[in-house]
């Protein structure tokens, strides 16, 4: 506060505030996230779910595919099967743990791949505009015109069954909507003067995309992607149900949900368990993404 106050052009009223720490953007995002306990809790929950799926062979009390005619449709809290058993007498807990492997993979991987591929195309289309934009976005529109279920079935059908093909078809389904979100955000940034200012200071197009465009596009895209996770789990099980994904004895939450449906009047609680697993997972993803959005907003 020595020279500044005497200088008429720099006169700060808040001159005696303590020095603020200069943080990078991501460091400041983490700093805000640190105090959002709900988001942190949900993040921990997601990690827990993923870990329990990964370590299913160690955690599961039974073989998930082994059926037992004597113990069909046992209720929750049964002394042998804590979460009951299904219509073939298989342990629900073990199936949920093992099923998480397929379901989480099918929920997260296609969305993640779709985010990366759709995001890149969207950023390119939005930033370059003009002909590039037209070519990319019209192509996306062709895919976007079909209902996603139909599109997934059609692609899987033509690629054939199997888990890789299921992954590929789901990824293709999610690219267009994510691309659209990224394109909208990127085309808004493109018209901002700070992008021109960066160009004027000699930054390459790649640096501008990396430093200015990505940072703006990432938040709406992540938020949208997180809402797709549950859709992806259900879509994947739909494909499996039609014989276009994993084959029946392999557990999968969506598949479990649809086969247990028939027993809903006998053991309603047991039948609801795979649905609850999907619900908890997708809510956790939504809350985390919402928390991220808030943390990524510098105004909060």
């Amino acid at each position: 506060m020595t020279d500044a106050t005497s200088d008429p052009i720099s006169f700060d009223q808040d001159a005696d505030l303590p020095q603020a720490v200069v943080r990078g953007y991501w460091a400041s995002v983490w700093n805000r996230l640190k105090y959002d306990y709900v988001t942190l809790f949900c993040l921990a929950l997601i990690i827990l779910i993923v870990l329990s799926a990964v370590f299913a062979p160690w955690l599961a009390p039974y073989d998930p595919e082994k059926s037992s005619m004597a113990y069909r449709l046992k209720p929750v809290g049964h002394d042998k099967y804590i979460l009951g058993s299904d219509e073939q007498g298989r342990d629900i807990l073990s199936r949920i743990l093992y099923g998480g492997r397929v379901s989480l993979a099918m929920g997260i991987l296609p969305v993640a791949l779709g985010t990366i591929i759709g995001g890149i195309f969207g950023i390119i289309a939005g930033y370059y505009g003009g002909k590039v934009n037209m070519i990319i976005m019209r192509t996306m529109d062709v895919f976007f015109a079909f209902p996603s279920v139909l599109l997934a079935v059609a692609i899987s059908g033509s690629l054939g069954g199997g888990i890789q093909n299921q992954l590929a078809s789901l990824t293709i389904v999610f690219i267009p909507p994510l691309c659209r979100v990224a394109e909208t955000a990127a085309s808004q940034v493109r018209n901002m003067d700070f992008v021109d200012a960066a160009r004027a200071s000699g930054a390459s197009t790649f640096s501008i995309l990396k430093d200015h465009v990505l940072i703006t596009v990432i938040s709406p895209v992540l938020v949208y992607a997180s809402t797709l996770v549950s859709a992806s789990i259900l879509l994947a099980s739909g494909l499996s149900f039609l014989g276009l994904g994993v084959s029946p004895p392999t557990p999968d939450w969506g598949l479990m949900l649809s086969t247990l449906r028939q027993s809903i009047w006998v053991q309603p609680l047991v039948c609801a368990i795979p649905g609850i697993a999907i619900l908890i997972t997708s809510i956790a993803f939504n809350i985390v993404s919402d928390g991220l959005r808030v943390a990524m907003d510098v105004k909060s």
Binding site: M192, D193, I215, T216
Partner: peptide, 10 residues
């Protein structure tokens, strides 16, 4: 619009 809202002044 001439300053990136996610960049600090520095």
């Amino acid at each position: 619009s001439s300053l990136n809202p996610r960049f600090t002044v520095e």
